[in-house]
Each structure stands twice: as structure tokens, then as C-alpha cells.
């Protein structure tokens, strides 16, 4: 069980520890880190802001659910490269790989010699998973996502999420479907190296047909990650900003702003299995297994 617990959070740990453990970020100045890391922040945001609901029905008396949500995030081709920012005299006709792009790096020739940028990890399908617990009462549901502090080497990871959902349809008599609004806040912190804040607001609706329910929603969201790392000064670099050791603190915003969600759920007594697709800056396929009453 402990192993499974670790694997579930592996995605978050991998992404955040990669900042601390490998050298790829130490070849990026404060401009290029944004182009390089934006697709990564988008993926983290798309994953963390997924799986917030599989029904708009909220218990009027008391309800409880514990769920495990699994996601597969697909990164589109146009987020595998970015146009680097280089000093005058350097040609940027050729794009550089982003964090998800090709493994080999890229080098640009100009008056001061070559400027080398790091390669990516060559992945376009990113798994993500997280558990969540929700309690509902009088048409309002409070959802909690939480992991206690995890040690990763000398560093610590914390993750916390809170969502509040309220039934709107309870105020509209004879409405043939359920409608609810929801707000979700998530924070992930990896020591003082990475700190990410994710916000999401959605309106969603669902309709039950026996043991099957269909649901859909529109979500506005944002993801911002503060990245702190050190440039490893290289006197051979053509970029003067990369020649000396320097601490960088960059705020990177994800491209995830809006998404459309459509899916279905199968209710088998106290067990609910759901699957949906999220269409946004990146596409997310979500499945969930919930125990609820």
C-alpha cells in the first residue's frame, strides 16, 4: 500500500524534483525558462485541476465520498518546441525543445559563439493520479486533496487542495437535470525550489439514467509556478547571462485557462466508475473510482 501511495504521487514528485536534481534548468536564463517550462506548468495545472466532479448532484442531507482519480494528459505537438530569446546577432529560425520536447538539446551560433539550450524528456503522454475525499451537507460539498509532507532526498514535498461545490439546481424547481458550481484551490510546494498555485472555477451539469449518469462542464482555471534554481556559469556560453553562477527566480504561468469537460459515470451501489475527456490547452482523459453514499 505504501508503494502504491508513492507511485500515485510520483508524477508530482518527478516533475518537482527534476528542478533540483538535474542540470537542464541551469542552462536557462530567466527569459528562456518561461518558454521551456510553460508546457510543463500547463500539464501540472491540467492534471491537478482535473477530476473535480463526476456529477452535479449534491446530497441535501449528508454525503461522503472517497475517490481515486487517474489522468492521462496528452501534450500537443506545438508545445514540444518554443522560440528562444537570444542576444542580437543570433538567428532563432529554429525552435528549441521544451521540457516535453526531444531529448537532444539545441545550439545557436552568433557573434559570441554557441548558446546551448537543454533538451526535453521526449514525452507526450503524461500520467497523473490523485486521491480525494468529499463531504456534502445541505447541497454544499467540500472536497479535500492532501498529502502529508514527503521527504525526497534532502527536500520536502507538500500538496494540498480544497474544493467547494454548491448545488444551483436545488433552487430551481422541476429542473430536469442537476447543475452545480465549484471552486478548487490546490497548492504544491517542493521546499523552496518549486511552489505552484492552481485555481479553478467551473459550472457543471449532470443527468442520471438509471445506473448511468452523463455530465458536462465548463471550467476557467489558472496555474502559476514559482521556480527557483541556479544557473551554472559557463564562460564558453555565447549568452553573457549564462557565464556566471546566478540564482534565478522565475514565475511561470501555464497556458491552461479554459476547458470543456464531458463524461459519463456508472453507479454500482456504493461504487462509482467514471470517465471523461477534458478539452483545453492540453487534452486530459480522466478515470475515477469512487466509494460514495
Amino acid at each position: 500500500m505504501i508503494k502504491a501511495y508513492w507511485i500515485i504521487f510520483l508524477s508530482i514528485i518527478l516533475f518537482t524534483t527534476s528542478f533540483a536534481q538535474d542540470d537542464r534548468f541551469s542552462q536557462l536564463n530567466s527569459d528562456n525558462v518561461k518558454g521551456y517550462a510553460t508546457p510543463l506548468v500547463t500539464t501540472l495545472g491540467m492534471g491537478i485541476n482535473s477530476g473535480g466532479f463526476h456529477s452535479a448532484s449534491v446530497a441535501k442531507t449528508f454525503g461522503f465520498s472517497i475517490s481515486l482519480k487517474g489522468m492521462m494528459i496528452t501534450v500537443p505537438n506545438d508545445q514540444l518546441t518554443f522560440k528562444p530569446s537570444l542576444p542580437d546577432g543570433y538567428n532563432t529560425d529554429e525552435n528549441a525543445p521544451t521540457f516535453w520536447g526531444e531529448k537532444g538539446g539545441s545550439s545557436y551560433l552568433g557573434p559570441n559563439g554557441y548558446i546551448s539550450l537543454p533538451g526535453g524528456i521526449d514525452e507526450q503522454s503524461i500520467p497523473f493520479a490523485m486521491p480525494q475525499v468529499a463531504v456534502s451537507f445541505l447541497g454544499t460539498e467540500v472536497m479535500l486533496r492532501f498529502i502529508p509532507t514527503i521527504k525526497a532526498g534532502d527536500e520536502e514535498i507538500n500538496f494540498f487542495g480544497l474544493g467547494v461545490k454548491h448545488s444551483v439546481s436545488q433552487y430551481i424547481p422541476l429542473l430536469p437535470l442537476d447543475i452545480a458550481v465549484q471552486g478548487i484551490y490546490n497548492k504544491v510546494k517542493f521546499s523552496d525550489i518549486v511552489e505552484g498555485t492552481n485555481l479553478a472555477f467551473n459550472v457543471h451539469a449532470s443527468k442520471s439514467f438509471g445506473i448511468i449518469a452523463l455530465y458536462s462542464g465548463l471550467q476557467y482555471e489558472s496555474s502559476t509556478f514559482d521556480l527557483n534554481y541556479t544557473i551554472k556559469g559557463d564562460p564558453n556560453s555565447g549568452d553573457p547571462t549564462l557565464r556566471q553562477d546566478k540564482d534565478i527566480s522565475a514565475e511561470v504561468d501555464g497556458d491552461n485557462n479554459f476547458r470543456f469537460i464531458v463524461g459519463g459515470a456508472l453507479k454500482l451501489a456504493l461504487i462509482v466508475i467514471n470517465a471523461d475527456i477534458n478539452l483545453g490547452s492540453q487534452t486530459v482523459f480522466t478515470t475515477g473510482l469512487s466509494f460514495e453514499f
Binding site: 507511485i7 538535474d22 542540470d23 537542464r24 539545441s106 548558446i115 524528456i121 521526449d122
Partner: peptide, 27 residues
Amino acid sequence: GFFVLVFSFNGCLLDAFDTLTQELPYT
């Protein structure tokens, strides 16, 4: 099945972090 799926994909992702390829400029 769910756990096998999550384990498998995370395994692929782990492999991606095993090595790093970098271009090094010299003058």
C-alpha cells in the same frame, strides 16, 4: 488494472529521467 496502468505509465516516465542529454559549447 487501474494500478497496473498507473504503474506502467509512471515506469515509462521514470525512464525519461534516467539520463540527460546536453549540448556543451567550447571556445
